[in-house]
């Protein structure tokens, strides 16, 4: 079995993507069977947003229609705990494979500023879009897709369609 090599020296190659996918599927199945919900990440990010909003102005946040229903402690939520788990699990795995590197990933002919600008704008759009669609790649596309929910699969198709349609316009960030 051959594996794709990483560009860094001393890093272990990535796992076979199909087997990594099966592992991810098993984790998702465990989540369905024990928690009774799928995986999720954007929910925890929104909770952090609500928490930050609470720090800035608690009355305004509690008064708002969307964040307001999450109460005074929006971080007390299972997805926030899943966030911590994802972080620790990925850190553990990256350390084992010697893949922890502090850097801005970009094409070698791309400025750090351009890459970070795209990352920030992409983040804002994704944060907004996940609230609108009530989930992200993990919560809607992957979990809802595995449950065969119509809306989640529609989301999945739209996500890739618009990704492929716009990829050409932002290709510069990966130019070497």
């Amino acid at each position: 079995m051959t594996t794709v090599n990483n560009s860094h020296n001393g890093c272990k190659p990535y796992t076979n993507p199909y087997l990594a996918g099966v592992l991810l599927g098993m984790v998702l199945l465990a989540s369905f069977v024990f928690l009774g919900t799928g995986l999720g990440a954007s929910g925890s990010i929104a909770r952090m947003g609500a928490s930050l909003s609470m720090c800035i102005s608690a009355p305004h946040t509690l008064d708002s229609e969307y964040f307001g229903k999450w109460g005074t402690n929006p971080l007390h939520y299972y997805l926030v705990f899943m966030f911590i788990g994802i972080f620790v699990g990925a850190w553990f795995s990256a350390l084992l494979a010697n893949r922890v590197h502090f850097k801005v990933e970009r094409g070698s002919n791309t400025s750090v500023r351009l890459r970070l600008f795209y990352a920030l704008m992409g983040g804002v759009i994704v944060g907004f879009a996940s609230r609108l669609a009530q989930g992200c790649t993990s919560g809607q596309a992957l979990s809802g897709g595995a449950l065969l929910l119509t809306g989640s699969l529609v989301f999945l198709v739209c996500l890739f369609a618009s990704g492929y349609a716009t990829a050409w316009f932002v290709r510069r960030q990966w130019h070497d």
Partner: peptide, 13 residues
Amino acid sequence: IGFGFGIALERAG
């Protein structure tokens, strides 16, 4: 479950 999720994501690259 998040721990497992994180490992799977990182292993996948």
